[in-house]
Simulated assay, not measured.
Amino acid sequence: MSAFDAGLTAVFTVWLAATVCAQLPATFPRWEKLLKFDVARLLPRYHFFAPFPDTYDYHLLVRVRSREGRPGPWREITAEPERTRWSAVWHPGRRECKLLRDLAESLRLSDPQCAEPGTLVSNPYLLLLNHAVAAVRTDSAATGGEVQFLIATTVGRAGANPPQPLFLSRHHRVPARPCQGP
């Protein structure tokens, strides 16, 4: 083995050891300080295991209140991603689940009662409202009515436990046609 090969092996060995230590900040607390000097981001940080793993599923439900003021039934608009044998490797449908979870957690932590005026113009609220309006736009009862969305959580297998409400939006008028860009 040449000196160049030995040096290259040493560099990659140190890099591998530093990458392993960077994954375990609780075990190696001094690494947090050293990671500040990794401005080129040469040490990847993987988070395979969350400190508090999800133990429940999120569901987005909508209902339409007619012009007469009668609320319709709740209807779930989140689709469970289809699982295939390739899901462990390629599963883009999980992004929608993650997005819903992130938006729901943001609303739950910032304003769970939907009481603050700023909540109505926040990005998580507007994204979910846009999705809800798009889901009911073809519903004939929605014409001239109002839409409301609910984020609920369930624990365990589907249907095993009743959903628990997490966030309830205000009522919003459903526009007659989609908004057009400039």
Rank of each mutant, 00 (worst) to 15 (best):
L103K: 03
A135N: 13
R83S: 11
L107E: 09
L42N: 00
T84R: 15
L129F: 11
V64R: 11
L60S: 00
C114Q: 05
V133N: 15
A132L: 13
G118N: 12
C114G: 08
R67W: 14
A135T: 03
S122V: 02
R95Y: 05
L109W: 13
L126Y: 01
P53N: 02
D54P: 07
R75P: 03
L60G: 00
V121C: 10
Y58T: 00
T84A: 09
T78S: 13
P112R: 00
A79G: 07
L129A: 15
R108V: 06
H47M: 00
G93V: 05
T78W: 05
V121T: 10
H131T: 10
C114V: 07
Y125E: 08
R85M: 04
R95E: 04
A115V: 01
P81F: 06
D102H: 09
Q113W: 10
T55C: 03
H47I: 00
T55E: 14
V121G: 11
R65C: 15
E82N: 09
Y56S: 10
P51A: 13
L42Y: 06
P81H: 10
E116R: 15
L42P: 00
P44S: 05
D57W: 10
E68L: 15
V89D: 02
C97I: 13
V64Q: 12
L100S: 01
L60K: 00
E96G: 06
T84I: 03
R45N: 01
N130Y: 08
A135P: 06
R95S: 04
D54H: 07
R70L: 14
R70A: 14
A134Q: 10
L120K: 09
P51V: 06
S106T: 14
A88R: 15
D102Y: 08
L127I: 11
E116I: 14
P71M: 10
A88I: 05
H59L: 06
P53S: 04
F49V: 15
P124A: 07
V133Q: 15
R108H: 09
P117F: 15
V89I: 14
W90Q: 01
G118M: 09
Y58R: 03
E105Q: 14
D102F: 12
G118E: 07
T119N: 05
N130M: 14
L127E: 12
L128H: 04
S66P: 02
Q113I: 04
H47F: 00
V62M: 11
V133H: 15
R108N: 07
G118Y: 06
A88C: 10
V89C: 06
N130E: 13
I77G: 01
L61W: 04
P92V: 03
F48N: 08
T78E: 01
R85G: 06
F48S: 08
F49S: 04
L103A: 09
Y56W: 12
L100M: 01
V62I: 12
Y46R: 08
Y58S: 02
A132N: 15
L107H: 08
F48I: 08
C114D: 11
T55N: 12
T55Y: 02
E80T: 15
E82L: 02
L120R: 13
R83I: 06
V121Y: 10
V133F: 15
L43S: 00
A115L: 11
P51C: 07
S66M: 07
L128G: 09
C97P: 02
L120H: 14
S66I: 00
R101E: 11
R65S: 13
L107T: 10
P117S: 11
V62D: 11
R108M: 05
W86G: 03
D54E: 13
E76N: 04
L100Q: 02
Y125Q: 09
L120T: 07
